[in-house]
């Protein structure tokens, strides 16, 4: 089975975001693999265990630096990587077109895994657009996946804590959610081994991807500075607990 995993190189959610102008994030801000994509890579590695002659190809559209995210995917179990290099920030229409072209150029997919969203642009569209370009079925926020008799049975989490199970014909596209697995992180020996795995770099222009009929461009970007108003919760442990419950109910509204 040819398993493609699309991975994105995103700023570390814990980093202080610095901008170099009003559109680009300073390259020296730590970037790493989009956390949802870690679930996708982990699931790919599990599938390969189940279907041993599979090959896992990690594909990434990004700047040269994004190679480090592909290296992480290789250390986590991917067999090789394809970096489609661009200096542009691409919207999900373009990203899907490029990834689609890169996968076709590379061979063909039996299954394509992505994260359910990227934590930087939070578009939640790329997997659907890839599916549409291929004419493959798509589900997202997968929490379970089973492949039997050429079909994928996928449990997806919906809003409000509901889940729905789908059966998809292969090839298909699956957006991985947090519930799918616990990411398997590499050991140092895994990292050493992965250094020998190949990464092919393709310039975006080499792919001859036609422009989408429309596009979304970033005109300006500013870091969001969240206002924090810390308050001290005082009193006996029982009073403190009661106050926390009150805040969770009345202010944060996460408890009913």
């Amino acid at each position: 089975m040819q398993i493609y995993v699309c991975v994105k190189h995103v700023p570390d959610s814990a980093a202080n975001i610095h901008m170099i102008d009003n559109r680009n994030i300073d390259d020296s801000v730590p970037f790493l693999m989009n956390p949802y994509d870690e679930h996708a890579v982990t699931e790919a590695a599990a599938l390969k265990k189940q279907i041993p002659d599979s090959e896992i190809i990690a594909v990434c559209l990004g700047k040269k630096d994004a190679e480090s995210t592909l290296r992480s995917a290789l250390a986590m179990g991917a067999d090789r990587g394809v970096l489609v290099e661009t200096d542009d920030m691409c919207d999900s229409m373009t990203t899907a077109r490029v990834l689609h072209a890169a996968i076709i150029r590379d061979g063909g997919a039996d299954i394509i895994l992505t994260g359910k969203e990227s934590i930087d642009s939070e578009g939640m569209q790329t997997q659907f657009r890839i599916g549409a370009l291929f004419d493959f079925p798509v589900v997202t926020n997968a929490a379970s996946l089973e492949i039997t008799n050429g079909k994928a049975r996928v449990g997806c989490e919906l809003a409000g804590g509901r889940t729905r199970t789908y059966e998809l014909t292969l090839p298909c596209v699956i957006g991985a959610g947090r519930g799918l697995n616990t990411p398997i992180y590499p050991t140092f020996p895994d990292v050493v081994k992965s250094r020998k795995k190949p990464i092919e770099t393709v310039a975006r222009s080499q792919l001859n991807v036609s422009d989408a009929p429309g596009s979304a461009k970033i005109i300006s970007m500013t870091p969001l500075v969240q206002k924090r108003n810390p308050r001290k919760i005082i009193g006996t442990p029982a009073e403190q607990a009661a106050e926390i419950i009150r805040i969770l109910r009345q202010e944060a509204k996460v408890l009913s």
Partner: peptide, 17 residues
């Protein structure tokens, strides 16, 4: 983490610091 990974080879190193 990789330095310690040389000493404890089964140590798993997450991507996010």
């Amino acid at each position: 983490c990789y330095r310690l990974g040389k000493r404890i080879p089964s140590l798993k190193v997450p991507n996010q610091p």
